[in-house]
Design a protein around this nucleic acid. Structure first.
Lengths: 218, 218
DNA sequence: AATTTATTTTAGGCAAATCTAAATTTATTT
DNA sequence: AAATAAATTTAGATTTGCCTAAAATAAATT
């Protein structure tokens, strides 16, 4: 049962998993996420259906089968373990981690990944705060506290950023907010859901809703 | 200057580097090592020449250019660092390490490899005892083992001949000793520093000191 | 409901990396 | 040196993953 899938196939399965979360998924959305054209996505959908990884018929929406979902979780496991390794052991900045893990995730030796998992002491979440599926493909669901929901006047530690967006990561870098930074909500503005925070010792910042919803604290 | 090469191209370059060690390299030997057909190798040779990684013309032998050699050393660096990591940190067995490193080596982020190198404390040799090129592509040169100094009863491969003397090469040809030939020292005669060797399956030869000092084995 | 617009699929092609079979060149024997 | 054998290259196909342009289908608008 050790079927090998191509990098392209794995990328499609992973994207389908992420995009399908919640609603129906269209060919256009899928090809958009993968930087390919809709016609290319259709080609791949035929192949994935052939391999029983998805259910799909022309003009209908896309669903992962149990087999497809299992594969997706395995790819996500690999990705997030590598992200953890890169951040924790090699001290990469959290905004560099995603791109490299994108390549490493396709090295599919099960033994490699399980040994890496053990080496890292079975981490529960990656540096973006996303949960890491275990060797059985079970994803620990983790309630995360976003800065947007955090209580006032309580010093909190930034433990993850729920986004891969380079632009956000850039912004955080500029304000010198990173993993481990202590942050405290001073005031909440109902007008636009923005908040004022104290960062570090005595720096005060005003953060938009988009930012506060992406910062995971503890 | 951050040219990206395909996995196939990298594998060819790496094989050329290894096989060419010492002598001239043929299309057949190359395709043999890569489990492809000679015709496929010819196709790739054209492409590699186009990219100025090798010098080659139809029916002539294959040489890496400076550019090709640099690339080869970079790939070998990646491969051996990953081998070291797998063995040292993940506790893989000696014989499992190669196959996985074969995949990891094609993840080409320079920063990743340099950080991995630092994390491992700049190891000098991989688990097979092969030297690891540094970030500048300098390979700590392994002192060469001459047959004259080789241990008894250990099968060794002829990797080079430390002489251009026609007469010696003629002699070696006569005894059917060439690059790649497996050779094993059976007995050493102190009287004249000559040795008795087993060549190939069951041929026994008696070689003079002059010969044993010219054959480089590994 | 009919028409227009948007999305998706089909059809036909292209580049990379491989193959087989035939032609060519080089090497070896007689 | 000619003839035969071996190795290499060319020619023409195949598969994968992508593309563009055209056709088909679904969704939105009038």
């Amino acid at each position: 049962m050790l079927t090998k899938y191509s990098v392209a196939e794995e990328n499609y399965i992973k994207s389908i998993f992420h995009l399908q979360e919640g609603g129906a998924l269209s060919t256009g959305a899928l090809s958009g996420a993968l930087n390919t054209k809709p016609a290319s996505a259709t080609d791949m959908l035929k192949k994935l259906k052939e391999k029983k990884l998805i259910s799909w018929s022309p003009y209908k929406s896309i669903q992962l089968t149990a087999k497809g979902k299992k594969l997706a979780l395995d790819i996500i496991r690999r990705h997030r373990l590598w992200e953890f390794f890169l951040s924790e052991k090699l001290h990469f900045e959290w905004d560099e981690v995603h791109a490299i893990a994108e390549e490493l995730e396709h090295v599919s030796s099960k033994k490699l990944i399980d040994k890496l998992d053990a080496y890292l002491h079975f981490p529960q979440v990656d540096p973006h705060g996303d949960p890491i599926p275990d060797a059985q493909g079970k994803m620990p669901h983790q309630e995360q506290l976003r800065l947007a929901q955090a209580p006032l006047n309580k010093p909190l530690r930034v433990v993850a950023v729920a986004s891969q967006e380079i632009k956000l990561l850039e912004l955080l870098k500029h304000f010198d907010i990173k993993l481990g930074t202590m942050i405290e909500v001073i005031k909440r503005f109902d007008f636009d859901e923005s908040i004022e925070v104290k960062v570090g010792k005595n720096k005060t910042l005003h953060l938009s809703e988009a930012i506060t919803k992406s910062l995971i604290v503890k």
